[in-house]
């Protein structure tokens, strides 16, 4: 009888453990599909006042520079798709020599990411880099359209 009670107690504790594991919140992990995860979120704000300028076409963000430390695995670079756009983006950050540092999943209008998980670290130096925005249609086909590239200086300190 005592053994039975002990067994029941152990089973109840085990069941509680299982519940705890199931309800524990997991870290957000948007797989970019390139083996590197990062959080793409809604409500991306380019951070500069657009001043009410109305313009046709697709809005493309551009950058002056970005900074990181040698060995860093994350780069602060605010890339996103302005909310008024009518097309999607696939964004890639790469060096002039073609080395890809980051590649996003589809960025719908209003979505972006500000701290990019990098595919590799860099040594100290100044690099010519680009954010390449492959513009695609928002329908299921995601048909490729024109491409825009924003050149910037990447300083690794």
């Amino acid at each position: 009888m005592k053994n039975k009670k002990t067994l029941v107690l152990v089973l109840v504790i085990a069941a509680l453990c299982a519940v705890v594991v199931l309800i524990k919140p997991g870290a957000p992990n948007d797989d970019t599909g390139n083996g590197v995860s990062g959080t793409i979120s809604e409500g991306w704000d380019p951070g500069i006042d657009q001043g009410g300028v109305e313009a046709t076409g697709i809005q493309i963000p551009g950058y002056k520079d970005a900074k990181m430390k040698e060995g860093d695995t994350t780069l602060h670079l605010s890339i996103g798709n302005p909310k008024d756009n009518k097309a999607g983006f696939y964004a890639t950050v790469q060096l002039e020599d073609g080395t890809v540092l980051y590649a996003s999943s589809l960025l719908e209008p209003g979505y972006g990411i500000k701290d990019l998980p990098l595919k590799q670290t860099l040594q100290k130096g100044t690099y010519d880099a680009f954010v390449t925005f492959q513009i695609v249609s928002l329908d299921e086909a995601h048909a490729p359209m024109n491409t825009a590239r924003s050149a910037f200086k990447l300083y690794v300190e």
């Binding site: 500069i48 313009a55 493309i60 520079d65 900074k67 300083y155």
Partner: peptide, 10 residues
């Protein structure tokens, strides 16, 4: 650094 400095339309 790392922030949007301009927006152009194409």
């Amino acid at each position: 650094a790392g922030e949007v400095a301009y927006i152009v339309t194409v």
